[in-house]
């Protein structure tokens, strides 16, 4: 029955100031992953918008509870000028040590402008090292995302939908067309057979399976992908191989 390797690119864990989330800890996360047959997950903290530093620490702690290395972590960055995080080289070395493979940002929660002035130093380094940058903070903020990508056109990035649902092709397709390193995670993208359409037009290598856990259950997106009409090779890439490749290519 094990016919596909799934690596979830859109998965949040932990609790925040609003109370317990449905996936507050590692045992609960593994239970959900096993219930649906999700092999691996790229995890970020559910409370990122309420703080980068403490959520980075908690992600590291979560990863220490995963001896089988099913999980890879995401850390949140901040503007370079305030000295809250170490210089990029040191920061990336710490990421590697903690098994953190990607970074994210939360400019609208953390009160700064996401641009070259604030993030140029670390994101230029991330670009050179091909470190994936999750753009979950830009979910639904298309004008801001378009400006951001104009500033960092070569950034290896993954756009994640928020609550999603409504088809976003009019926003999404110009980005896929113009930025070769722009990737798209499927969580919340419910367009009928839309994943297949995007893969045929822009390449299956640009699309990553994402569940949207804990808000969304993995099973809905998994079945949507499995029955999307994609050829087996493209299906396997989107289900898990693309994310594995992106993380392997990152030079931490």
């Amino acid at each position: 029955m094990k016919d596909l390797f799934f690596f979830d690119s859109h998965c949040r864990i932990g609790s925040n100031c609003m109370g317990h989330s449905p996936v507050p800890d590692i045992p609960t996360l593994f239970e959900e992953m096993d219930r649906f047959g999700v092999d691996r997950a790229l995890i970020r903290h559910i409370g990122i918008d309420k703080g980068a530093l403490w959520t980075n620490r908690e992600v590291s702690a979560f990863l220490r509870e995963d001896p089988a290395h099913r999980l890879t972590g995401v850390w949140c960055i901040l503007p370079s000028q305030c000295d809250e995080l170490p210089e990029p080289d040191v920061f990336f070395a710490l990421m590697k040590e903690a098994r953190v493979g990607a970074i994210t940002l939360s400019p609208f929660g953390h009160n700064y402008i996401p641009c070259r002035l604030t993030l140029g130093r670390i994101l230029d380094a991330a670009t050179e090292r091909k470190i994936p940058v999750l753009l979950d903070a830009f979910a639904g903020k298309w004008q801001e995302l378009y400006h951001f990508l104009e500033e960092f056109p070569r950034l290896r990035c993954i756009y994640l939908e928020g609550s999603g649902r409504w088809g976003t092709d009019r926003y999404l397709r110009p980005l896929l067309e113009n930025y070769p390193e722009f990737h798209f995670s499927t969580g919340g993208y419910w367009v009928p057979e839309g994943i297949c359409d995007l893969a045929e037009r822009y390449g299956a290598n640009r699309i990553l399976f994402g569940s949207g856990l804990p808000r969304f259950l993995p099973g809905s997106g998994m079945l949507q992908l499995k029955q999307s009409g994609l050829d087996p090779q493209s299906l396997a890439m989107i289900a898990g191989k693309n994310l594995s490749r992106l993380l392997e290519e990152a030079q931490l």
Binding site: G167, W190, P192, G194, L217, S220, G221
Partner: peptide, 17 residues
């Protein structure tokens, strides 16, 4: 709501409950 949402997404959501 087809053609808004994929049949398999919705079926998978019911199966996931």
């Amino acid at each position: 709501d087809l053609p808004w949402f994929d049949e398999f997404q919705a079926i998978g959501g019911v199966l996931s409950a």
